[in-house]
Amino acid sequence: MKLLVACLLALGVVLSACAAELKIDLGHGTTTYRTETLLQRHDVRTISVPGDVAFHRTMHYRAVPLTTLLKGIDDSDHLQFVAGDGFAAEIPAALLLNKLGSEAWLAIEDPAQPWPALTTDNGHAGPFYIVWTQPQAAQVNPEQWPYQLATIRKQDGVAARFPAILPDPSLPANSEVRRGFAVFQKTCFACHTLNGEGDAKLGPDLNLPHNPIEYLRADLLRAFIRNPQSLRQWPQAKMQGFDAKALSDADLDAVLAYLRHMAERKSAH
C-alpha cells in the first residue's frame, strides 16, 4: 500500500511538471507556453551557468534565449516577472536587450530530470527560471534571476504604476536618495511593497506602518541587509542577504538614504 501511494505521489509530481505553463503578455493578448513545447523548440540548448544565483554553484540547464519569446520589445519597454511564491521582479527591457555580453535565458525544468532542491530552504526553483550567462558584463543584479516563474508581463514603468514610492520630485537628479530609489527597485521591490504599493507578496511593506529605520539602529539595519540571520536566526526566513558583490557599500548607503527619506513621506493607505 505504501509503495502504491509513493508511486502515485511520484506520478503526480511528474504530471504537474509536465503540465507547467508560463504565460507571457506583451500587450497583445496572453501566450501560454507549456514545458513540453518549450523543450521541443529548435532553439533549446544546454547551457552552463557558473555561480548560479539560486544554487550557488555551476548549473546546467535546458534553456531558450529569453528574447526569442519576447518578440517586439524595445529598449523603452518595461517587463514584470511574477513568480509563484509572490516574488515580482521589475526588469527594464533595455537590460534584456543589452549588447554588452550578458544574455538572459529561460531555463526549463525537464520533469524527467528535475532540478535539485534549493540549498537555502529546500524549496524548488522550477518549473521556469530566468538565468544569465556573463551577468557581470551588464551588472545584472541577483534579484533579476526570478525562479518559480509563472508570468511575464509588459507593463508601464514602476514610477507610472506606483507613484507613492517616488521620492520628492524637487530632489536634484544626482541626489543620493534618487540613487537609492533606483537601487531599491532592483534589490528590494521584488519582495517588498512600500506605502502599500507594489505587486510583490513575499515580504512586508517597508514604510507602513513603520519604516525599518524607525525601529532599527543604522548598524543593525546594515547588518540585517547583509545577513538577515545576523539579527534573527530563523531557519524558515525567506530573505537572502546582499553581500558587497550584490550590493556595494555605496548602494547600501543610498538605499538607507531613500528609506530615511520615505519615512517622512508615508501615504494614507
Rank of each mutant, 00 (worst) to 15 (best):
W115L: 15
Y147V: 01
H42M: 03
T32G: 11
E264D: 14
A63I: 00
H269M: 05
R232V: 15
K99W: 00
A6M: 09
G180L: 11
W105C: 13
T119V: 09
P65G: 00
A88I: 04
A20D: 14
P167T: 03
A250R: 05
L66D: 04
A89Q: 05
T30H: 04
H56V: 09
W234F: 14
V53Y: 09
I165P: 00
D243H: 06
Y61F: 12
A218E: 15
L206W: 04
A63Q: 00
T187V: 13
P146G: 11
E90H: 14
N174G: 10
L247V: 02
R265Q: 11
A182W: 01
I108C: 05
A107I: 03
S267W: 00
G126Q: 15
D156R: 15
Y215C: 03
V177H: 03
D52F: 11
L70Q: 03
Q233S: 12
E109F: 04
H56L: 14
K201H: 07
Q134C: 04
H28P: 00
Q240N: 14
C188L: 05
N98G: 00
L252Y: 03
A237P: 01
R62H: 07
E21Y: 06
A237M: 08
F224A: 14
C191R: 03
H192W: 04
P111M: 10
W115C: 13
H60I: 02
K154I: 08
T193R: 11
T35K: 05
P167H: 02
T35V: 13
S102L: 06
S267I: 01
A20M: 04
G126T: 10
L106N: 10
T67S: 06
Q113V: 15
R265D: 02
P228V: 12
